[in-house]
Simulated scan of single mutants.
Amino acid sequence: MHKVILSIDHGPSNTAWTAGIYIQPIKRLNTVSNVQTIGYVDTDYRERANETVRKDIATYAGWNNSGIAISGIFLGHTAPNDVHDVRGYLKNVSATVRHSEGFLDPTIVVHNPGRVPDTNMTSYHADVTVVFEGEFRDMPDRKKLKAGLSDLKGRREDFAAVVHPYRAQSAEIGLEESSTA
């Protein structure tokens, strides 16, 4: 299943309703059987207040009232280890996603520490954990990544990578730049 992350101004934007230009594209994405649309909410490694993150989650859930809905939330910049009760913070905001009315079923929660987190950080509250984020050239080889994941509980589909290729490498890995005229 492919995840399409929606981020308007690094989150749902400052308004309760999404801008009209996004409604039709989101509706179209929601008709594709192997795509889940999810909203981006930055946690800033727990620096953003719990209330602020929960407000962003509620804004996305409220989009359902405008005729569009998404499948869950991509929590960006989650801390990879449990300092200052990060685990409790993530448990709380993840539960907010799961218990908010307005998301499509199945509701999904993605945590993005951008690297392999400590083992106690991949518990029941995330459906997917991003274990690498960066440029393609910096991606660890398969054996190194597999070794880093060996202590984590979960199946292969519970983990993801967000890769930002740059133009010179795009052709090298089989990606083509698309343009619209």
Rank of each mutant, 00 (worst) to 15 (best):
D118Q: 02
T129L: 01
L75A: 07
V163L: 02
D141M: 04
W63N: 13
G62Q: 08
A181H: 15
V93S: 11
Y40M: 03
R48K: 15
S7D: 08
F103S: 06
T18S: 13
A58R: 06
H84T: 09
V110H: 09
K143E: 08
Y40R: 03
I73Y: 02
D44F: 06
D44G: 03
K55E: 13
M121A: 03
T52K: 13
R28V: 13
R167Y: 12
D138R: 07
L6W: 00
S150V: 02
S150M: 03
S170E: 15
F74I: 10
A171T: 07
V4T: 04
V109N: 11
Y22W: 15
N64M: 11
D158R: 07
F136I: 02
F103I: 02
V162Y: 01
V53G: 03
D44H: 11
L90G: 04
S179G: 14
S179Y: 14
T107L: 04
V97N: 10
I5Q: 06
M1Y: 07
R115M: 10
G148K: 04
A160P: 08
V93K: 09
A79M: 09
A181W: 15
Y40N: 03
G67W: 13
S100L: 10
I21W: 15
I68S: 10
D105A: 15
M121L: 10
V41T: 09
R155W: 13
G11E: 02
D138V: 04
F74S: 05
A126F: 08
R87M: 04
K27E: 07
T180G: 12
A69H: 12
S33R: 10
F159P: 11
E51R: 08
S71Q: 04
I23F: 04
I8P: 00
K55R: 12
V4L: 04
R156Q: 08
S66W: 11
I26N: 06
V162S: 01
V163E: 01
W63E: 14
E135I: 06
K27Q: 11
I23L: 12
E176L: 03
R155S: 15
T78S: 00
S123G: 14
H84G: 07
K143S: 08
E47D: 14
F103T: 00
G134N: 06
G62C: 07
A79D: 08
W63Y: 12
Y166M: 01
Q169Y: 10
V32Q: 05
H84V: 08
H84P: 00
V86N: 14
L90C: 07
L152Y: 05
V83F: 14
A95Q: 15
G114R: 01
G154M: 12
S13E: 11
A69F: 03
Q36L: 05
V41Q: 07
V109Y: 15
L29F: 15
S179W: 10
D151W: 00
R46W: 00
H125K: 02
I68F: 07
G134T: 04
A61V: 00
N14W: 13
S66P: 00
Y22P: 09
I26M: 08
S100G: 05
W63V: 09
I173K: 02
L29A: 10
M1G: 11
A49P: 11
G102F: 02
Y22N: 13
P140M: 05
D151I: 01
T15C: 10
P80S: 10
S33G: 14
V162D: 00
N81D: 04
E47A: 13
G88R: 08
L104A: 09
N65C: 05
A61R: 07
Q36D: 01
T107R: 14
H2F: 13
